[in-house]
Design a binder for these strands. Structure first.
Lengths: 215, 215
DNA sequence: TTACTCAAAAATGTATACAAAAATAATAAT
DNA sequence: ATTATTATTTTTGTATACATTTTTGAGTAA
């Protein structure tokens, strides 16, 4: 994965460009155009397109050609719902394995998140690292990978709206509450905080997207 | 998807061959060998391999090459756990939309499942169709697709053990109970039956796989 | 004997070239 | 004028060929 700088960087860049709306939305992407644009052949483009299709960034457009998946309120809600069920679940497996080392690392990440000068992307990245470092302690690769996949799909929505601002203030509070509960080995409390945390963030996003689609 | 008979059939066949243990396990698959074996070039092979990797049939083997994913008890348990949470969830969305037409179709599928002369593959297929036709009524593509993906990963385990026999007798009973609860619009009952149904099947499978790995 | 280096091999990644399929445009018929 | 049909063009799918990387083995030194 990391040892193929060529295709890997292409993958990263294309994803970034989708995030940043650098590519035409609601319009079939043509392999040759992309190939020319990124200075490679169609073969690696095809690979990356398929990968992004599998991750939910692109969808089949008619019989041939793919287009950027539109951001729907319902999809956001579904992704959030799934996370609300699966993340507390993996937390149950993680809790017994949470060493002070891990908890300390998680706290460092929260401190870093308190920095006010973070870009939206950096913010999302740190946020995910916080959650991921907890979940990884569960040693449940299959469950973890599904959650990773859900997060990747969610990441398209992050930064799409500017509720990120107040998101951060309330969200950080919940993060610290969660960490405290974990330190005290209060599983059920931690789970309910986490579920609430995910629901909260989704609530704002969904209502925003619904309002967006009305006019 | 269906309009590319070439790559599509290659995909189906490779999957089938993995199910039937026609391919070497725990050994890197070589693109050229596969290409020669299936009478095509490496390009479509690469496409199919990536697709199967994304669906969990294959895993990266070291730095280059992919191998058939081994069936672990933990993975089976994780997949089942996720289904236990997500399938009752989608059922909640589906219930209001379950017309008599859909319920009738579901019942037909159960009747077909009562046939004793079904192959393991056919059995698994009908079983999935029963669940899917209910879930599809939810009109929740994102949630549904994740569940589909989980089922695809589970399908590798189906037919791996011969507990399919008594699985069918108890499983069918649960199916009919579920259908009755849905007919009566008893959501919570239906959800608990469904969760139990998934847990039940997984329990046997996991203990079987754990026993398998001991000696 | 063991470990290390380097070279030969094999396998993957990528580019170019060609074939098949799809989309589009244009023409003909009603 | 509108629709149907065919021809053209565009786009994707696949094969072949080449470059790069990885693996493997032999050979040498400790």
């Amino acid at each position: 994965m990391q040892d193929k700088p060529m295709a890997q960087s292409l993958y990263e860049q294309l994803k970034q460009d989708i995030r940043d709306n650098k590519l035409p939305v609601a319009m079939a992407l043509k392999q040759e155009e992309l190939a020319a644009q990124y200075g490679v052949s169609r073969i690696p483009i095809r690979d990356v397109l398929q990968k992004l299709k599998n991750e939910g960034w692109l969808v089949q457009s008619g019989k041939c050609g793919v287009m950027i998946a539109s951001l729907s309120a319902q999809e956001a809600e579904d992704l959030s719902l799934m996370r609300q069920y699966l993340e507390p679940l993996i937390l149950a497996y993680a809790l017994p394995n949470l060493t002070n080392n891990i908890l300390g690392h998680a706290e460092d990440l929260l401190v870093a998140l308190d920095n006010k000068h973070l870009s939206v992307t950096e913010c999302g990245e740190l946020n995910w690292q916080f959650h991921a470092c907890l979940y990884q302690a569960a040693n449940r690769p299959t469950l973890f990978n599904t959650i990773v996949s859900l997060h990747q799909q969610c990441s398209r929505y992050i930064g799409f709206h500017n509720t990120q601002l107040n998101y951060n203030s309330t969200s950080q509070g919940e993060h610290y509450q969660l960490l405290d509960a974990l330190k005290n080995k209060q599983l059920e409390l931690a789970q309910s905080i986490l579920k609430q945390h995910i629901a909260q963030a989704s609530c704002q996003l969904v209502s925003y997207l619904q309002a967006e689609n009305k006019p």
